[in-house]
């Protein structure tokens, strides 16, 4: 299955990855090639087969509601690109 340019643009928007005009054809070819591989799945009869999202048949463990974390803002913000007054700064958010 080959993938249209329009679709690549939509994927780029959804995944917030800028794709240059010069590489869009190459990206499209690579993605089409992978889709061709995974399209083999379409031929399989999976009627009545349960989807498996986890290798182990375990269930979720529950944590007691007790505070176990201390304030480490300094340490975390030491690796942040831009902070001020304890806040992470980003270009203005428009709602």
């Amino acid at each position: 299955m080959s993938i249209e340019r329009q679709e690549i643009e939509k994927l780029a928007t959804l995944s917030r990855i800028a794709i240059g005009e010069d590489t869009i054809t190459e990206v499209s070819e690579r993605l089409s090639s992978v889709l061709e591989l995974v399209d083999q799945l379409q031929a399989v009869n999976t009627e009545g087969v349960e989807a498996m999202s986890h290798p182990m048949k375990a269930t979720q463990r529950l944590r007691e509601d007790e505070i176990s974390e201390i304030n480490q803002r300094e340490a975390f913000q030491a690796v942040a690109p831009d902070t001020e007054d304890g806040l992470f700064l980003v270009p203005k958010v428009i709602e």
């Binding site: 995974v38 799945l41 379409q42 399989v44 999976t46 087969v49 349960e50 989807a51 498996m52 999202s53």
Partner: peptide, 9 residues
Amino acid sequence: GKAQQVRQL
């Protein structure tokens, strides 16, 4: 969805 079923197989 399909891949998760095949995973089961």
